[in-house]
């Protein structure tokens, strides 16, 4: 398994860490530059405020994008039901914490397990039985699953949006003139935790290495004795679980309803493509970037067109550079869609 040693997918992880570590330094410089140009203190705090808003949404897109990538790497399928995993995660969490009054850590685990099971069921009953898959057929199957999940969510949770209490207090903290919700810190923390887990899983565990081997060359992996069908199931399970976590952590801020899945899904896909499809570290940077751009657009252009920003970015990337910011265009030519 020599190919696992030099994989740009995982190695690009340090780009993210670098950018995170240097963020305070950068910010100081930006502050200096901007104040040098006679900008008021409030503009900076505005920008900072939009950054926070953007980062918290961006983390969700990043998590959705990781979900897309996992299934894409294992199967070459884009799962159009990815957004629905996020929605179900959020709604299930609402029921467990607000109606059943379970403590948040327990509800978190139960919800993630539940959605993971949905992911496994989806793979077992809809993807696995397809004997002669064509791209068109697989796309329509995942669309059908997304319609079913959406319909089920509407039946169980109704059409109104649901409120959920924050993980810790809902009072905002002051940060350089901008306010930040403790929930935002939770979101960033959990994203970092998942990223760390992701890197660990794919680099240091046998199962993770097997999954990567399957992603690189399924036939070769099968010849090396890896059960590729199991890996496909595992990728659906993990992707659903990560989607659920995204839904759980964002629900206190955006109030989940059944119909959000499609848009969350497209934006997550936008992040995945911008970062280079299949490249999860790129997806995280791209997700946060899209979130921030969206928040800035909402602040400085118009909040009505906020949702369009991510979609326009998606289309531009698809049209101009389908391999994304961090993907290589040569590798892209070899991939099948």
């Amino acid at each position: 398994m020599i190919w696992i040693q030099h994989d740009p997918v995982i190695d690009s992880g340090h780009i993210l860490l670098k950018s995170l570590f240097f963020y305070p330094v950068l910010k100081k410089q930006i502050r200096k530059n901007i104040t040098g140009r006679a900008m008021t203190e409030s503009t900076i705090s505005d920008i900072l405020q939009f950054m926070f808003m953007g980062i918290q949404r961006g983390c969700i897109y990043a998590l959705a994008a990781i979900g897309f990538n996992m299934i894409y790497n294992a199967t070459g399928i884009i799962n159009f039901a990815q957004g629905e995993f996020v929605v179900i995660g959020g709604l299930m969490m609402v029921t467990l914490t607000m109606t059943w009054n379970l403590p948040i850590p327990l509800a978190f685990l139960l919800t993630t397990a539940f959605v993971t099971l949905i992911g496994i069921a989806m793979e077992r009953f809809t993807i696995n039985p397809v004997k002669h898959p064509t791209v068109l057929r697989l796309i329509i199957i995942t669309i059908a699953v997304s319609i079913i999940i959406k319909g089920a969510a509407m039946c169980f949770w109704g059409k109104n949006s649901h409120f959920m209490r924050h993980f810790s207090s809902a009072e905002t903290l002051d940060f350089y003139g901008a306010t930040i919700l403790p929930q935002t810190i939770w979101i960033i923390g959990i994203l970092l935790f998942i990223v760390a887990g992701y890197i660990f899983f794919f680099n240091y565990t046998m199962t993770g290495k097997c999954m990567r081997a399957c992603a690189i060359n399924r036939d070769a992996a099968r010849l090396a004795g890896i059960n590729d069908r199991k890996m496909v199931m595992l990728s659906f399970a993990l992707s659903a679980g990560i989607g659920a976590i995204a839904g759980i952590i964002i629900t206190p801020i955006i109030q989940m309803d059944y119909a959000r899945g499609a848009l969350l899904g497209i934006k997550g896909f936008g992040a995945a493509v911008l970062g280079g499809l299949g490249n999860s570290m790129g997806a995280i940077i791209a997700g946060v970037l899209i979130g921030v751009l969206e928040a800035l657009a909402a602040g400085y252009i118009s909040s009505h067109y906020m949702d369009a920003i991510a979609l326009i970015i998606l289309l531009l990337v698809l049209f101009v550079r389908p391999s994304g910011l961090f993907g290589s265009s040569e590798a892209m030519r070899l991939k099948e869609f």
Partner: peptide, 22 residues
Amino acid sequence: KGHYLAMATLGFASIVHIVSVA
């Protein structure tokens, strides 16, 4: 092709819908 085309057209449809609302 395939998935990219599906997503691009889906994105286009959502943009038109957003504009018609906004």
